[in-house]
Design a protein around this nucleic acid. Structure first.
Length: 264
DNA sequence: ATCGGTACCTGCACGC
DNA sequence: TGCGTGCAGGTACCGA
């Protein structure tokens, strides 16, 4: 489900839990737990107050009062919900002193990780795409010989971009998904950077893209899917030139692009 | 050190 | 209606 704009929307919609105390925690699946069993994690969470919610790329970091962190990744189908009832794929239930927070994830690709220190995996991530300076972005591009689509998906390069926003960014920049990163000269690097910032900013303003089941913590859908120009539009006319949108595989992920507007 | 491919899981849309 | 296939917003891990 969730890339940077969706996770940002979820994180903002979780504002009501900040300051609340976790009175009980229940984990019904071990698959989504990283480094802990259901009982010990529940025990360690009980009684702790939620001090803050932050987003790091596609991760949601819940800071706990007195130190400690609950790190959450939504995978493909993870949802955090402020209202029940628990359903078939509800894997975690945090009962708060006021309200509840449920985690639902049909494919179970998401994860929960509880740590007393700042999670090491967050340090492996690249910069936020909405914070990185163009000069640093362009310099990093020059050092990579890989295909630009794969590089945008690489969380160590920039954090938070997934398949939708990689394709939409490349279309707006007029860059072919198979173009080599190191071959993007100053002009194309600039267009790529500007397109990335514009797409992500617009998508956040739209509350993200609801392709099938994505909703924020209050159950609200996003509407950026109506602004997609290439993603999942294979065969449809390019909105700029009318050429049919094509699909190919890059790094084992579907890539949608206009063969006329996006030259190699 | 970087890659491309595969595995992990469930659900859905599609063609037969 | 049922069944097989391919596809889906994610990352991790393997061998080359």
């Amino acid at each position: 489900m969730p890339e940077l704009p969706e996770v940002e929307t979820v994180a903002r919609s979780l504002a009501p839990v900040v300051g609340r105390r976790i009175v009980a925690a229940e984990f019904r699946s071990t698959r989504v737990l990283r480094g802990g069993d259901p009982r010990s994690m529940a025990q360690r969470l009980r009684g702790r107050r939620i001090a803050g919610i932050e987003r790091y790329g596609k991760f949601i970091l819940m800071g706990l009062e007195g130190g400690g962190y609950l790190l959450i990744h939504l995978g493909m189908t993870g949802r955090l919900l402020l209202e029940g009832p628990a359903a078939k794929h509800t894997h975690a239930i945090l009962t708060l002193d006021r309200g509840v927070l449920l985690y639902d994830d049909s494919r179970q690709f998401g994860c929960f990780q509880l740590s007393e220190e700042f999670p090491a995996r967050l340090r492996q991530l690249g910069p936020e795409p909405l914070e990185v300076r163009f000069e640093d972005f362009a310099r990093a591009l020059r050092r990579r010989n890989t295909r630009i689509k794969a590089l945008l998906l690489n969380q160590a390069f920039v954090r938070g971009i997934g398949n939708i926003y990689a394709d939409e960014t490349l279309f707006r920049a007029g860059i072919h998904p198979l173009a080599r990163a190191s071959r993007l000269g100053g002009g194309r690097a600039r267009r790529l950077f500007d397109a990335m910032v514009a797409v992500l900013t617009e998508a956040i303003a739209a509350g993200g893209s609801s392709i099938s089941d994505y909703v924020d913590a209050r159950g609200r859908k996003g509407f950026f899917q109506f602004s997609h120009r290439v993603y999942q539009r294979t065969g449809g006319p390019c909105l700029t030139c009318g050429t049919p949108i094509r699909r190919l595989l890059v790094a084992a992920r579907s890539s949608h692009f206009c063969p006329r507007c996006q030259k190699r």
